[in-house]
Amino acid sequence: RGITCLDHENEKVNMYCVSDDQLICALCKLVGRHRDHQVASLNDR
């Protein structure tokens, strides 16, 4: 089922925000508060 995003409840987390040490979803990176932050794919970890 996967872990859902805290900010976007219908989205699954699939990225890690290095700047905030937090799991995020694609919407967080595209339009959310993490858009200018350094992120890594969970597949890279």
Rank of each mutant, 00 (worst) to 15 (best):
R1S: 06
R1T: 08
R1V: 06
R1W: 02
R1D: 09
G2V: 05
G2S: 09
G2P: 05
I3H: 06
I3R: 09
T4W: 05
T4G: 05
T4A: 05
T4P: 04
C5K: 03
C5W: 01
C5G: 02
C5N: 02
C5R: 01
L6S: 14
L6F: 10
D7T: 05
H8G: 01
H8Y: 00
H8W: 00
H8P: 03
H8S: 01
H8D: 03
H8V: 00
E9D: 12
E9P: 15
E9I: 07
N10W: 03
N10T: 04
N10K: 05
N10S: 07
N10D: 09
N10L: 08
E11M: 06
E11L: 01
K12E: 14
V13S: 09
V13A: 08
N14L: 08
N14H: 14
M15G: 13
M15K: 06
M15T: 08
M15V: 04
M15L: 11
M15A: 13
Y16M: 04
Y16A: 13
Y16N: 05
Y16I: 04
C17F: 14
C17P: 04
C17Y: 01
S19A: 14
S19C: 08
S19Q: 14
D20E: 08
D20Q: 01
D20H: 02
D21T: 07
D21C: 07
Q22T: 10
Q22L: 06
L23A: 14
L23R: 12
I24H: 06
I24T: 08
C25V: 00
C25L: 00
C25Q: 00
A26S: 11
A26D: 14
A26P: 11
L27W: 07
L27N: 15
C28R: 00
C28V: 00
C28G: 01
K29G: 14
K29A: 13
K29N: 15
L30G: 14
H34N: 02
H34T: 02
H34G: 03
R35P: 06
D36F: 02
D36Q: 05
Q38G: 06
Q38D: 14
Q38P: 09
Q38K: 12
Q38I: 03
V39Q: 09
V39F: 03
V39H: 13
V39G: 06
V39K: 02
A40V: 07
A40Y: 06
S41P: 13
S41M: 05
L42N: 12
N43R: 07
N43D: 10
N43W: 03
D44R: 07
D44M: 06
D44H: 07
